[in-house]
Computed example of a mutant assay.
Amino acid sequence: MLVENENQNPKRKLYSCGDWEDNGLGKDEDEDTYEFTEIKSSLFENDDYILDFSVGINHTLILTSNSKLIGFGYNYYGQLGTGDTDDQSIPIQIELPKLRFNEDISNYHFSCGFNKSFIYYSPPSFSNLEEDLIKLFKRKEFCDISFKTENGEIIEAHKLILKYRLNQNQNQNEIEKLQEIISNKSNQESNQIFEMIYSNNSILNPKLYSEIKEIINSNEKIEETIKRIYLNEKEKDFIIERKEKQYKFPKLILIMRSELYRGMFLSVTEDTSNKVTDYSELSNKSFQIFEYWIYSNQIKDEIKITQEIIDEIQIGIDYFQLNQTNPNLFDLLIRKFNNQN
């Protein structure tokens, strides 16, 4: 049972009652408790809250939003995961399996059984552009801005993405504010902050998200962010030509969305041209569909889909190496074609 005080700065409290055998109540007293009594521990912080918990026969595990795994009770078989078999009468902090920076503490789930415990990690769910942005964040080859954590470690990011994900207030330097926040965070926390900026997913770590929500476009969908880049010609630094028509894209967006360009930019040399011209099989309309979809996962409502466009797009999907994207552009075209007819 979890309750809060009614004061302005509530202290999280945990209560238990019942059979005390084998320290299962999380208190020093070796007697049964017939009504809910507070379990006192400094491990339960003011700003912390319980994400998940599980009660076994005589042991308990609790996961908090501050990335703490707390446990107590019978431990003869090592079911608390402390690395020993000592029973714990009061709550202690237990080391979690090492988190990779792209893992989210709220996606850990626990189950305590009869003298055993299980931890299950389920990856966070992103929409497709969010997932692409997270993949891009991990590609250090294309990072062009650095941030220093409290331990002096360097976290690298993409300036173009930050430019559009942070608030665009002419009177404020949000990059400097972000650096100030990162300078007081661990490497793991810093990576989580960037992942939340890239994905706009506050669930990853609500406490950290509360610290950055004032400097990011927290109400804006990722699709809207990418479409704003689409509308800004100054950000487009790569030219794709077909016949006499030119299309400009930011390299970062092509890296994010197409395996073809990801491979191409990874092997760029000084002699590499800034143009790709082999798109003769695509009409202007088909290429415009590609262009808009790469930025938004959408097809413009006003575009009339024909069988010819569908055939061309199928060729283009293979050329761009977009087969793994979801929603699949080809599926969207078929659905729109059927609705229009």
Rank of each mutant, 00 (worst) to 15 (best):
Y77F: 08
F110D: 07
R139N: 02
S122E: 13
C143A: 04
M1C: 15
E281I: 09
S67N: 02
I212L: 11
Q192S: 02
D331E: 05
L129D: 05
D271F: 09
I305G: 03
F320P: 13
Q288D: 15
R262L: 13
L99P: 11
N328H: 07
K251E: 15
L332N: 01
N46D: 15
Q288T: 14
E189R: 11
I203L: 11
D52F: 11
Q307H: 09
I299T: 06
T272K: 13
F126K: 10
E103K: 00
N5G: 11
N191W: 14
C17V: 01
F110P: 13
I57D: 10
Q168K: 15
S286Q: 06
S286A: 11
L63A: 03
N173P: 08
Q324E: 15
E223Y: 10
N5Q: 10
Q93C: 04
M264G: 00
I240Y: 12
S186G: 05
E176F: 13
K285S: 02
I90E: 08
K221H: 01
N326Q: 11
L204A: 10
Q246L: 12
Q314S: 00
I105K: 13
M1E: 14
H109Y: 14
N187G: 00
I94T: 12
N58G: 01
F287D: 06
I203W: 12
F101Y: 09
N201D: 05
I94M: 15
I289H: 02
I203N: 11
S286V: 06
S267T: 15
S67C: 01
N328I: 02
Y292G: 02
K13I: 00
I315M: 00
Y247A: 04
Y230R: 11
K138R: 13
T37L: 15
S125M: 12
Y209C: 01
D144K: 10
S65Q: 04
K40E: 15
S273P: 10
D84N: 06
G263I: 06
I181D: 10
Y15G: 00
D311P: 08
I70C: 00
N328K: 07
K245D: 13
I317W: 05
D271E: 12
I134L: 10
